[in-house]
Write a protein that binds this DNA or RNA. Structure first.
Lengths: 212, 212
DNA sequence: TCGTTGTTGTGAAATGATTCACATATCTTC
DNA sequence: GAAGATATGTGAATCATTTCACAACAACGA
């Protein structure tokens, strides 16, 4: 059960497949190649593209380079995307050295914490006091933050982020947070994901059954 | 934009707010209380419940304890859910000591790795050689694993998991993996989530626009 | 006891997402 | 340069999800 993706996520996936095809030497691609690679119908691929005015040519398909250029612009991949990490405990620090970011053009520019023991403004990747959050974000023009704080601190820390120029938050605290008008929150609750897996494994596919 | 949840995820959420209400002293709850708490329509809450034969009483609402007992059974929360973690690098180790699991009745029983430097079968939470994976899983009756391995190892490691009794995998490697008939995979690609946030922040809500 | 109030449970309606199907355009070959 | 083959782009049809709307029923008050 490959977890239904929304259109924005599909755009990212198209992009990733296109890079692979390009590396393999392909120059053009058809909607059914992409469909096969991602288990989507070719019609959906074309609908998605047409929604964003990504056009191809009949009989000839889509030019990979052209598509990639447009997708990269659409997804903001034409410039480095700067983010900060709030909460530098185990998970926060693991994310600070996560190699998957660089590959995606994402740069972690600083960490923030309230614990003096981890604060270190002069490290190559500085960890600053949460007090300095607002001004730093403003000065550096950061819009996106990752929150990896203990659940009991989550609400308070969120207030700090919401009082800043931050517009999007990826939250790893096991507390579902609610954004506001000008701040989008994406909650990743690992415990919940596991719970969900148990559920799907239990009812592999078929729904609505009572426990036997 | 609170990211559309599927019905299984909603069940988990109902459970979580029911616990909060119960802690507050509530005994009964109405579909619109739950709707308000989760930003869902009360009708959807009732539809969800009715699909799983979770019944209430007209004019009186739902009994929280009853609902929780049924939800817990449905979600497998009536017994401890055992999992293992494959890949004990930074992220793997952060997850091994992640406090969110215990609270959800999830128990990490072992880690696996191929690097002799981190293998330690006698630690309180043992880290074993990946070679022992299959037999261990079988002996302990584990069905779910978390994969936190480098992307270049992901495919190989997945083969090991698929050759075992594992039926569900939560994958943190930045490579989208495909399950098979008897193995469900949930990919969590942190880079991609960030990419997505940038996208949603860029088009806060309105879709389909061309870049100005 | 009987009306009034408030909430469930669920068909029917509305909305949203995906697939179908085909007219249209481009390449290829003869 | 005409005929044939193949892929796009999209309106219409289908399928899935969510909301509406209301009958049926339980509690309460007079």
């Amino acid at each position: 059960m490959p977890m239904k993706l929304d259109i924005a996520q599909r755009l990212s996936q198209y992009r990733s497949v296109l890079y692979k095809l390009k590396a393999l030497g392909f120059v053009r691609v058809f909607s059914d190649n992409l469909g096969d690679a991602l288990e989507l119908s070719p019609a959906l691929v074309r609908k998605d593209f047409s929604l964003f005015h990504l056009t191809g040519n009949k009989r000839v398909g889509y030019q990979i380079d052209d598509l990639l250029a447009k997708l990269n612009r659409l997804l903001g991949k034409d410039k480095t995307q700067k983010i900060v990490i709030v909460g530098c405990g185990k998970i926060g620090q693991a994310l600070m050295s996560y190699s998957g970011f660089a590959r995606e053009g994402i740069q972690v520019v600083a960490g923030f914490d309230t614990n003096p023991a981890v604060i270190n403004p002069h490290a190559p990747l500085p960890i600053l006091d949460l007090k300095e959050f607002g001004p730093f974000i403003k000065r550096e023009g950061i819009r996106i933050a990752i929150m990896a704080v203990p659940d009991n601190a989550a609400a308070q820390v969120l207030d700090v982020l919401r009082g800043s120029e931050i517009r999007g938050v990826l939250n790893f605290a096991p507390v579902p947070l609610r954004g506001g008008d000008h701040c989008i929150i994406r909650n990743i609750n690992i415990g919940l994901e596991i719970e969900n897996l148990f559920y799907h494994v239990k009812f592999s596919g078929k729904l609505g059954g009572r426990t036997p």
